[in-house]
Amino acid sequence: MTSFEPKISIVINNYNYEKYIGVAIQSALDQTYENVEIIVVDDGSTDGSIEIIKGYSNIKAIFKKNGGQVSAINEGFSIATGELIIFLDSDDYLFANACCEVVRKYTKAHSMISYKLQLCNEQGFLRDEFLPSIDLLESNHLDFIIKYGYFQTAPMSGAAYSAKFLANHLPFDTSRCGWIDHLLTFTAPIYGEISSVNYALGAYRIGHSSLSEHAKISLNKLRKNLLASDLYAEKISESLASEKNILIKKNKILGPYHWKERYISFVVDNENHPFVDDSRLMLAYNCIVKFMLWPQIGFTKKIKNILQISTMVVLSREKIILAVGKMTNINLKA
């Protein structure tokens, strides 16, 4: 248990979530840890969110034009005064003990405290499912990043970052696409220590009957995600070089599912594929090697994915398109 009580800033970013924003704010207000400030950034909502936010007098509120989640995070960070910062999505909520449990792990050497999130439905009722589904990594985060470029973690609401660490990345350039939570999480071990809480300290809301249904994406969204992951890999590579004098190309950092989805993008619609230097054989090679080496994928899944990738090498484009719907979460019709 730490002998000090660092201030925690809970920054809630919101856009048109009038159904949930009150729950998120109340969960921040209900923290059993006392040294907390609550900042709500509304990113140009057009529903009833603004009126709900204005109903709370004991928070800091920012109302801005719509600019996207990264711009909202930049705004919240600019006025946050906490030593630790939690970026809470407005459709998620924290459990009352979240900040207490974070502080139990925290020292000034930390850049991040990571914790699990429990899935809940649209009404907020908790399910017996968690993100991630496996245990969070307890140690050797930097070694894992250097070797694999990635480790299992919860989405944005599942981490508390030190403000000192965040200053290395924020404000982030909003003209560049990016999964800001991945960028922050996977560079955090380069700048400081990481600790994990291997149980849920908050809830992650999904609106479908299952997580697999919730995860279905269009080809257009998949390509945006591919560009985003390419960006965070670039940032990891740059941070390793500048902070640790370790030179690793970004392609080595990218994980197996990135390469699999990138391969599908290339094959099904090469004309609009966003990576001009890709080739079919290069993508297949990276897929197979990454799945073979990846430690957080079970043997059965490794074999299944390697067989799928190997099959796609010899199938025609038309047959791959027919197979994609069965093999992946990509909806080519959306």
Results as ranks from 00 to 15, higher is better:
residue 313 V to L: 07
residue 190 I to C: 14
residue 2 T to F: 05
residue 88 L to P: 01
residue 274 P to S: 02
residue 77 F to H: 09
residue 90 S to M: 05
residue 232 Y to E: 13
residue 163 A to Q: 14
residue 77 F to K: 08
residue 109 A to M: 08
residue 199 Y to C: 13
residue 297 I to F: 05
residue 70 V to T: 06
residue 121 N to H: 04
residue 33 Y to V: 01
residue 194 I to Q: 14
residue 172 F to H: 07
residue 107 T to C: 11
residue 158 G to L: 03
residue 164 K to E: 04
residue 148 Y to N: 02
residue 105 K to D: 06
residue 321 I to R: 05
residue 195 S to P: 12
residue 281 L to Y: 09
residue 217 I to D: 04
residue 279 S to L: 00
residue 30 D to W: 03
residue 88 L to H: 09
residue 117 L to Q: 04
residue 5 E to Y: 11
residue 181 D to G: 10
residue 74 N to D: 08
residue 63 F to T: 07
residue 49 S to R: 07
residue 198 N to R: 10
residue 279 S to D: 13
residue 55 G to T: 08
residue 49 S to P: 04
residue 107 T to V: 12
residue 191 Y to T: 00
residue 214 H to D: 09
residue 34 E to C: 14
residue 332 L to N: 00
residue 124 G to V: 02
residue 85 I to C: 01
residue 332 L to M: 06
residue 157 S to P: 08
residue 45 S to W: 07
residue 144 F to Y: 12
residue 95 F to K: 05
residue 223 R to T: 12
residue 3 S to K: 14
residue 126 L to D: 15
residue 78 S to I: 05
residue 94 L to T: 06
residue 254 L to Q: 01
residue 247 L to V: 15
residue 109 A to R: 08
residue 272 N to H: 12
residue 17 Y to G: 05
residue 98 A to M: 06
residue 235 K to V: 06
residue 161 Y to S: 10
residue 125 F to L: 08
residue 61 A to C: 08
residue 266 F to Q: 05
residue 187 T to N: 08
residue 154 A to L: 08
residue 15 Y to H: 07
residue 253 I to C: 01
residue 85 I to H: 06
residue 127 R to W: 06
residue 14 N to R: 03
residue 238 E to V: 11
residue 36 V to A: 02
residue 25 I to W: 00
residue 324 V to D: 08
residue 241 A to N: 14
residue 163 A to G: 04
residue 41 V to R: 05
residue 205 R to E: 06
residue 117 L to E: 09
residue 332 L to T: 02
residue 36 V to I: 12
residue 64 K to F: 15
residue 4 F to C: 07
residue 300 T to V: 04
residue 154 A to G: 07
residue 109 A to W: 15
residue 195 S to C: 06
residue 34 E to H: 08
residue 201 L to D: 02
residue 71 S to G: 14
residue 148 Y to W: 10
residue 239 S to D: 08
residue 104 R to Y: 15
